[in-house]
Design a protein around this nucleic acid. Structure first.
Lengths: 200, 200
DNA sequence: TATTGTTTGGACTCATGAGTCCATATACTG
DNA sequence: CAGTATATGGACTCATGAGTCCAAACAATA
């Protein structure tokens, strides 16, 4: 990706990372539209030359790095649950982790930043988002297949399709929460989605 | 809302409406972030003084008007199907109408504009979004109850909860399509959601 | 037709924020 | 320790876009 990464000192790498994480936090707090390079400089205690030193292509490049970072955060935050959906209890723990996360974080949410703010700006960011969806979908589908192998879900069900529906429900639930403050859509989507699996 | 609306001539009202619809189109095409007042002026053949004449509070006020307009569009576009979900065939027609709409429109989508671009900017726009969700949810829930009364769905199901889950799936499906270009999530959400109702 | 209010044109101001540039400081390498 | 590369500070330019203002055109009404 970045050929010049080799040139970075340990200190340089630390600064670069500090910028990414600070930018991510700022964007989560105030949105992409309101976040300026000056805000990021203030939060991360850096100067303008540092920003352009580590991200020569400017804001777009930084945003892309933030997108990649947030994308990883989204998946990490669901672990270890998402990686081991091997029993109904595990599914319930995962469900609770997701809901809890958004109950606590409220507006301050990396998915939203990614999906609705950075995600559509550039083709690069779009690719990051698409990859996140693919991984997430895959993890859920693997969980469904695991239960199918245990005979807890009918093998007549299409695991990929069910996973897609569930993931769409999560995305929409989070989106609605952000737009209206109402968490019940997310809960309904998860509960009804899991219930549908269960009754098959 | 606007006390001064009374002062508007027929011509004035037409101009105001032209501005709103032109702004909506521009925003759908290029996104809120990239849409400037000059773009809107060019598209609607208006001058800056007209913009500020009809929207004295400036861009925010115009955006709010666009939000209200798009909100109405979203519901209108689903009619007559959404208003008469009284048989499984009607549900299927509605499903097809929604999918078709987004297959054709692609990125050019009022919901996305509303939910992820204008929706979170100001409290006023947030209220518009919340109201849209409430109406939409209510229409779906009414459809579910209609089938329950006909004995086609078990009355044990919570219509509101099922409607919330389905609506979340639609929102998420649209969001994913916008971010990745993949329509299959939306289809999966609708199909699985309706199938879940059907099998109860 | 005179008068008043509405509508429109477009130049102007002003703030902001991205990106450039050069100087300096600090860290590696032989 | 010299020399070179990396890291940092901060002033500067420049484009852009929101919002202001004044004057002119047009419409309604008496």
């Amino acid at each position: 990706m970045d050929l010049q990464v080799q040139k970075l000192t340990a200190k340089g790498r630390a600064t670069r990372q500090r910028i990414i994480e600070g930018a991510a936090a700022e964007i989560r707090a105030r949105g992409v539209a309101l976040t300026t390079l000056e805000d990021i400089m203030a939060r991360t205690q850096t100067s303008k030359s540092q920003l352009f030193h580590y991200f020569p292509d400017g804001k777009d490049q930084l945003l892309l790095a933030v997108a990649a970072f947030e994308s990883q955060t989204v998946l990490d935050d669901q672990q270890p649950h998402l990686g081991a959906l091997t029993s109904w209890a595990a599914w319930q723990r995962w469900r609770d982790a997701v809901v809890d996360r958004y109950r606590r974080q409220g507006q301050n949410c990396p998915i939203a930043v990614l999906m609705s703010e950075i995600g559509r700006t550039t083709p690069g960011a779009q690719a990051v988002t698409a990859e996140l969806m693919a991984k997430w979908h895959s993890a859920i589908a693997t969980g469904i297949r695991s239960l199918q192998e245990q005979g807890k879900i009918s093998t007549a069900d299409d695991a990929d399709r069910a996973a897609a529906a569930l993931l769409a429900g999560i995305q929409g639930g989070v989106g609605i929460m952000l737009a209206t403050g109402d968490l019940s859509y997310l809960e309904a989507a998860l509960d009804e989605g899991i219930a549908a699996l269960r009754s098959s």
